[in-house]
Design a protein around this nucleic acid. Structure first.
Length: 219
DNA sequence: AACTCGGGGCA
DNA sequence: TGCCCAGAGTT
């Protein structure tokens, strides 16, 4: 997809969801970081349910470090990989205190050195919290990139580079939210609802469903 | 690059 | 039941 088409694509998504915001609930950069670490292979809804009590009880790195691995685990047992995640989050909080005075660092190298933080989470934090020119590739964005031709690639890194290369810099941050929400509700893994998509004119997906299935209630 | 971890949500 | 989920760490 050309850069011009990419810009039109993102703009169309923006106009379709003018008030789109993250589905993850967080009040600051620390909560964003922890939320995304917990999100690996889990749905946003289940993460929100788990972090509600966790953040209430431990709203900052210091209190969460004091809560400890076992204490954290008791709040997040409802999501997958909770053992490893509780271990990582406890360690992550200690690392924030020791290395960064309890603050979330703003650079990729420091972020990726934290427990449970890989390239994807680092990109989210840099994009959302610090406005950096990065794009995080999750399963939704990977799917959209390939399906539409916006950013094709076999690896997440290829998709990431394609996105950053094609999307205008000043649209990278909102594009992150718009693409994820688009993948969640419209360009879904199964049964995509193309009739609700504002960008089908640029899309390469061969099995587009341009008309909604017949509903039981004939409104 | 491929594999493993792992529980909940949803059709 | 089978597929999917705002991935990271190891081999």
């Amino acid at each position: 997809m050309s850069k011009a088409a990419a810009k039109a694509f993102i703009t169309a998504l923006a106009e379709a969801n003018p008030d789109a915001e993250s589905e993850l609930i967080f009040r600051n950069t620390f909560e964003l970081l922890v939320s995304v670490v917990l999100s690996a292979q889990a749905t946003d809804k289940s993460v929100n349910k788990a972090t509600k009590g966790l953040f209430e009880h431990a709203p900052d790195p210091k209190s969460m470090a004091e809560l400890g691995e076992a204490g954290i685990a008791q709040y997040i047992k409802t999501i997958g990989l909770w053992r490893a995640k509780a271990h990582n989050v406890a360690l992550l909080c200690e690392q924030l205190l020791e290395r960064h005075a309890g603050e979330v660092p703003a650079d990729r190298k420091s972020l990726e050195a934290l427990a449970g933080v890989g390239r994807k989470t680092a990109n989210v934090v840099m994009n959302v919290a610090f406005g950096a020119d990065t794009m995080a590739v999750d399963t939704h964005i990977f799917r959209i990139g390939n399906r539409t031709g916006l950013a094709p690639g076999k690896t997440t890194r290829q998709v990431e580079d394609g996105l950053v290369a094609r999307i205008p810099k000043d649209m990278l941050r909102p594009a992150h939210h718009w693409l994820i929400l688009h993948g969640r509700y419209v360009c879904k893994a199964r049964a995509p609802e193309c009739w609700r998509c504002p960008a089908t004119q640029w899309c390469l997906y061969p099995d587009k469903r341009l008309t909604p299935p017949r509903t039981k209630e004939a409104a």
